[in-house]
Design a protein around this nucleic acid. Structure first.
Lengths: 117, 117
DNA sequence: CTATTAGTTAACCAGATGGTTAAATATTCT
DNA sequence: AGAATATTTAACCATCTGGTTAACTAATAG
């Protein structure tokens, strides 16, 4: 039912870094080449290059070379599986406030037989 | 608009590990204590304990002690923000097959002026 | 009291991650 | 050809990660 594929590993891991999420946001807005994508990030070009490779390996971007310029393109397909995974827990966050209250309520009520000393 | 909160970092990072996703699945099915959650995972109890702490710090589970037993409870609220983040890219994966085709199509068409040698 | 059970903490280790600078590669400009 | 531009690769480094085993704490059972 739920698959623990390494694709999901790579997708979530790629998304766990704020720089990479920013890069995805810029890609979504149409930015393309490495230098351009790197500019707003206070870090060296090789650092950005590494982030791009992580995103690429996660399948979140496609790269195409035109001469020395690498044109990047967002490919959000891997996010679909991630979204599906997360969605399975929707019912849990929907009811979570209620269940948290219930949870806190049984402060002094043990889950099963308990010696209470 | 899009926030790069460390909460999102922690959520995605927590989700990037298959053992932790399995643990969340077990929690969703009602399992509670550490020993019980650890059993199906071919690893030591301290290892599972660490995973639980990661999930806890990400806010994905709540812990309550009853004597020596730690009762865990899934809290999926952090997944909500994650889902929202991912959802922003829905339009990109919805149209991605079309746009990929278009992308591959311009195989020989440069993105802008290009010397073509 | 002693043994067992539940779980964490400590110390350690190998490998991954996220960054750096310097050098290399490839392409375009003049 | 030579200079500038776009980007990667290499080498290095500190920190994080995911696992181990051993020792510890706390609580229940006999």
């Amino acid at each position: 039912m739920v698959k623990y594929s390494s694709a999901l590993n790579r997708t979530f891991a790629a998304l766990a870094d704020p720089t990479r999420r920013r890069i995805l946001a810029h890609l979504a807005r149409g930015d393309k080449c490495v230098t351009h994508l790197a500019k707003p990030h206070a870090m060296s070009l090789p650092a950005v290059s590494k982030h791009l490779r992580v995103l690429e390996k996660a399948g979140l971007l496609r790269r195409r070379r035109y001469g020395r310029v690498h044109e990047m393109r967002l490919d959000a397909k891997p996010l679909r599986q991630a979204a599906q995974w997360v969605e399975e827990y929707r019912k849990f966050w929907q009811g979570s406030l209620d269940r948290l209250a219930e949870y806190l309520e049984k402060e002094n009520r043990p889950p099963e037989k308990r010696k209470t000393k």
